[in-house]
Amino acid sequence: MKTILLHVFEDCGFESRLQVGLDIARCHSAHLTCVQPTTQFAPMSFGPLGGDFVTGINFEDMNVAERAHREKIENRLKSEDVSWDWQTGLGDPATLLTERSRLADLAILSQSFGKRNAGDEPLPIAGDVAVHAHCAVLVVPIETNSFDCDAPIVVAWNGSAEAAKALRLALPILKMANTVHLVTVGEEGEGFPHSAASIYLARHGVSTVLHELKGKGKEASHIIAEFATEQKASALVMGAYGHSRLRETLFGGVTKNLLNDADIPLLMGH
């Protein structure tokens, strides 16, 4: 874990993203790359007769706000004991972060509010980035104000390719945890039971505690989240969208539910 991407945007989740990023960077002696999507455009004419395009968006004010936010955060980072750099780029934030993740170990974003509303809520891009990123993605609730690298971590296991990738991408963080809980809910897939995942981790020097959680009439997402809270886990490692995204959008699913409602950071891979 040596290169960490931090999504920079002035929303109510940025402070929690920054603090978690700084904690993990210190713990792993890692470099923090601040990625700021920008609204700066070259002047263009959109009128049907070459006139100015009329819009309610004041791009100059947005540019001024972005520059001010960058200056504020850069001044803070100068006093932190981590190495860092700043990158800006045009385009969709999810696409930009995905592109920059090619040579990164972790990307840090915020949990969106789902059905809740707030004027400065984080952009709802975590799901898209988790599916397409080339590295692990850490989705941070806005209430989170730190990341304890020594705390327990819970790994949700269902034998899927997505769960396996998340587990592999999470190895550097799992090695730091004082306890790794490997959990399944209901029946396991026959191909890769959680005992196989435990053996894989053991070969990397990571000991695990195996748990088979029963449904008890609750949704799997609720059971996993409840267990992680009971263990005082610093993060929940899981595969992103084991079912199709369309299916989860229409009918719900573990990924969708936890992206909206988890109380602890989600470390995801797809």
Rank of each mutant, 00 (worst) to 15 (best):
L138E: 01
W84Y: 15
L49T: 12
V129L: 00
F192S: 09
S29L: 11
E187I: 15
M176D: 12
L106Y: 02
F147Y: 10
R17W: 01
M176Y: 04
N178M: 10
V140I: 05
A166Q: 02
L171D: 05
C27R: 11
L106C: 03
E190L: 13
A197S: 09
F147N: 00
F59E: 15
D61Q: 14
H270I: 10
P43M: 07
G21L: 02
G242V: 06
E219D: 14
C135T: 00
V140Q: 03
H211D: 07
N257D: 15
L236F: 05
V54N: 06
E162M: 03
I57K: 09
F46K: 07
R168I: 02
F147L: 08
G51A: 10
S198R: 08
Y241E: 00
K2P: 05
A262C: 14
G50T: 06
A107Y: 00
D92K: 04
D81C: 11
P93H: 04
R245M: 12
H222A: 14
K232H: 15
A156Y: 02
H7Y: 09
L49A: 14
C135H: 00
S221P: 05
T39G: 12
A136F: 03
T208G: 00
K175Y: 07
R70H: 13
N117D: 12
L49E: 15
K216A: 15
R100E: 09
L106T: 05
D11G: 10
K175H: 09
A170R: 02
G91I: 05
M1E: 01
R245H: 10
A130S: 10
A177C: 09
G50W: 07
G47F: 09
G205Q: 09
Q19V: 03
S221G: 12
L32T: 00
R76F: 08
S160E: 04
E74A: 14
T39N: 13
H132S: 10
D85G: 11
V35L: 09
P152V: 03
M176G: 09
F53P: 05
D85I: 01
K2Y: 09
